[in-house]
């Protein structure tokens, strides 16, 4: 499964970078979403992919039965998903405010610092 995931992650990154390189700020937003998802998937798959063995311990036992998926990347990605949402909200609102003030959706017209 891993090689397929590798290709999928690569595609996600390529799509994200392509969108971030656009001049339209709305496309930039889409690019940001793609990029954060790509990064999350990258971290998630970094420890390998395990089917049907969630890192949970059955009741009454002190250790999981058999090998389970690595819980560490999962914990890292879990917070990353929520933070990505927070950052996305921030970025989206920032872009919206910038658009209101500059009245342009072209990033090239936003290059002056003193608006």
């Amino acid at each position: 499964m891993e090689p397929i995931m590798a290709v999928a992650i690569g595609t996600l990154y390529a799509a994200a970078i392509f969108m971030i390189l656009r001049r339209s700020i709305v496309k930039l937003v889409i690019g940001l979403i793609l990029l954060s998802n790509a990064a999350n998937l990258l971290i998630f798959t970094s420890a390998g992919m395990t089917r049907g063995a969630p890192p949970l311990i059955p009741e009454g036992l002190s250790a999981p039965v058999g090998a389970v998926a690595d819980p560490l990347p999962q914990a890292v990605v879990l917070t990353a998903i929520v933070i990505a949402f927070g950052v996305l909200a921030f970025a989206v609102v920032l872009i919206r405010r910038a658009y209101e003030i500059v009245k342009a959706d072209d990033l090239d017209k936003m290059k002056e610092t003193d608006t």
């Binding site: 969630p54 949970l56 009741e59 879990l78 917070t79 929520v82």
Partner: peptide
């Protein structure tokens, strides 16, 4: 703490 869930998920 024991089953899927926790502060992040519950908060969402």
């Amino acid at each position: 703490h024991d089953e899927p869930g926790g502060g992040f998920i519950a908060g969402l």
